[in-house]
């Protein structure tokens, strides 16, 4: 825990932090205005928002966590893999769970039971 001797502005990483700050603001605002100006939804809309989120993720990783600069200790890599794994599990799992839920529980559709039975290949005997 040595005290920093250089002034802030001379620090190499200072530039990176400012860049990171600007980029993270841009991605946040872009996502917000994109979402509020666009009311139609749809797949393309979702993908664009996800891309903004991904850009935000990269900004945080590179500018604040300095992921690219130091690859020496192996646990850095392990930590990244573990985090990626858990993020994947939560995101993919949530999408799967919620999609399956909507498929089974769509209340708007009056014929949903019929449709599910057909989709799942059940024979309906009268």
């Amino acid at each position: 825990m040595s005290a920093p001797t250089k002034s802030l502005l001379q620090d190499k990483s200072f530039k990176l932090y400012v860049q990171g700050f600007v980029f993270s603001l841009i991605f946040t605002l872009a996502a917000y205005f994109f979402a509020t100006s666009n009311t139609s939804g749809g797949l393309l809309f979702g993908i664009t928002l996800a891309l903004f989120a991904f850009g935000q993720l990269l900004t945080q990783l590179i500018c604040f966590l300095h992921l690219d600069q130091e690859s020496k200790p192996r646990y850095n890599q392990m930590a990244f893999i573990y985090t990626a794994l858990t993020v994947f599990a939560i995101v993919a799992g949530s999408l799967w769970i919620m999609h399956n839920l909507h498929y089974n529980m769509k209340p708007q559709d009056p014929n949903i039971e019929q449709k599910i039975l057909e989709n799942e290949g059940y024979e309906i005997r009268q």
């Binding site: 573990y82 794994l85 858990t86 599990a89 939560i90 799992g93 799967w96 769970i97 399956n100 839920l101 498929y103 089974n104 529980m105």
Partner: peptide, 22 residues
Amino acid sequence: IAVLSYIVWLHHFFTMGAGPNV
């Protein structure tokens, strides 16, 4: 356990309405 504990959470809400495969 540190890995598996992230892929079991639905067992707290089996009854919420997910299908048999989930």
